[in-house]
Design a protein around this nucleic acid. Structure first.
Length: 402
RNA sequence: GGGGAGGUUCCCGAGUGGACAAAGGGAACAGACUGUAAAUCUGUCGCCAGACGGCUUCGGAGGUUCGAAUCCUCCCCUCCCCA
């Protein structure tokens, strides 16, 4: 392992830093910057921005974070930009509709939880966490207008997202055009040497290069990384699409979600998220390979012991269909009470109607017995309730009046 | 500013006076099957109700009608063309 304070030589750094990279603008500049940094031992400033629009980071973000970590290990400094100002706009990239604006309170809240999650991967002493409001607010309206004068409408509308929206007759609001400008101006303020982003960020990143040049600065080098496909195997991983694995997910949850990805994603997950050799996995039984992958990822966030427990629990619950070792416990009012009502008060079903439907469908087990009578009365006293494949709990009753 | 098209259930989208809790697709959930929480097939998918039946919903507020998602009035929002 390289000492984190020494800047590595380009020969050493390039193969690692370029692994998995989609776009590189511009190769020669990157080489020159690495060379110069190595000679002077002045680390490069590597920027990546995150919008605190949702408090939970997921594995999709990790692709980028892992790359940033590699830069840190090569001796460079990460500029971790929290887009508290840009969050007022919302990145229109890949969006078919406008984002709902967040209150400054939500933004602050989200930003706070960010740092905790991020440092599971990044090295704290090689990371500058900065908020872009700190230079955007002083810029003021006149500054923003000067900035806007540097780019043309045609160029901004060219991009795919907007073209698509226009052809689908969906609204594009004026402020959305400002997003790339502001992201680019971040790079000007920070005098970044390199900026990383997802491959869909290329436009925004390149605007940064333009603006730096227009401010008589050496433009940043731009690197983009592949977008991680979500567990549905189709769309980009995103929380709002429900196909994400959150860093905050528990070990069991994370393991299970990873096991559910289509087999063909195993290799790309391995490449982008772990140090496993994808060609090695390709020769294994697909399920074994996926187990290995899931364990490798889970252990990064929960430790090896937890990942092994998650595997055992997965085998137990899904392969052998047994009751998990640890199940939550709930108390309901004393029986006799309808099982469907128990399910609703526990949160296993949203309404009585739904609960009865589940029972009719044979989805509900009471102490290991499938219940088919939607009107069954029970008197809970430590009984085991199973709803669907995944919901298990133990039900007790509280005497009335307590 | 002028002209045209729209806003439907979680999402997309049909429906233009009763047969509409509202087609179809997607998502979600369940069952079967499976190495898997994948794929596939089947079912469910507003709320309440032990079949009957009742209640709330189609941008918002009023109105016409025995009866409205559907007609009228006003308002809000979006898209397109022209200026």
């Amino acid at each position: 392992m390289i000492s984190p304070t020494a800047v590595a030589s380009p020969e050493q750094a390039l193969p690692i830093l370029l692994r998995g990279v989609v776009d590189l603008h511009v190769q020669e500049e990157f080489g020159r910057k690495l060379e110069k940094s190595f000679k002077s031992q002045v680390p490069l400033k590597v920027k990546a921005g995150f919008d605190p629009t949702s408090p939970d980071l997921h594995l999709g973000h990790c692709v980028l974070l892992k790359k940033l970590r590699q830069f840190q290990e090569m001796g460079h400094i990460v500029q971790f930009v929290i887009g508290d100002f840009t969050a007022l706009i919302g990145d229109p990239t890949g969006r078919s509709e406008i984002r709902k604006p967040l209150t400054s309170q939500q933004i602050a809240e989200n930003a706070r939880t960010y740092a905790d999650q991020v440092f599971r991967i990044l090295l704290p002493d090689r990371t500058d966490v900065v908020f872009n409001s700190s230079w955007m607010n002083p810029l003021g309206v006149s500054g923003l207008i000067r900035l806007a004068a540097l780019q043309t409408v045609a160029r901004f509308l060219e991009r795919d997202d907007f073209q698509k929206r226009m052809s689908e007759r969906l609204p594009i609001h004026l402020h959305e055009l400002l997003y790339p400008l502001i992201q680019g101006y971040d790079s000007v303020s920070l005098r970044s040497d390199v900026e990383l982003g997802g491959s869909d960020q290329l436009f925004n990143l390149l605007v940064g290069r333009d603006l730096m040049r227009q401010h008589q600065m050496e433009p940043q080098v731009v690197l983009t990384l592949p977008l991680l496909v979500g567990v549905d195997g189709e769309k980009k991983m995103s929380k709002s699409l429900g196909n994400a694995v959150a860093l905050e997910d528990g070990a069991n949850e994370m393991f299970g979600r990873l096991m559910s990805i289509p087999d063909r994603l195993t290799a790309s997950y391995a490449t982008l998220l772990t140090d496993l050799d994808p060609s090695f996995l390709a020769n294994m039984h697909p399920k074994e390979a996926k187990v290995l992958l899931a364990k490798a990822i889970v252990s990064q966030f929960h430790g090896v012991a937890e990942s092994e427990k998650a595997e055992a629990s997965f085998e137990r619950v899904f392969s052998r269909r047994e009751v998990p070792e640890e199940i939550p416990e709930y108390s309901v009012s004393q029986g006799p009470i309808r099982l469907s009502s128990v399910m609703v008060s526990i949160g296993a079903a949203k309404s009585e109607t739904l609960a009865k439907q589940l029972i009719r469908q044979g989805a509900v087990d009471w102490n290991g017995q499938t219940v088919l009578d939607p009107f069954l009365l029970v008197s809970p006293a430590g009984d085991i309730l199973k709803v669907g494949k995944r919901f298990y709990c133990r039900v007790n009753s509280t005497p009335p009046g307590t």
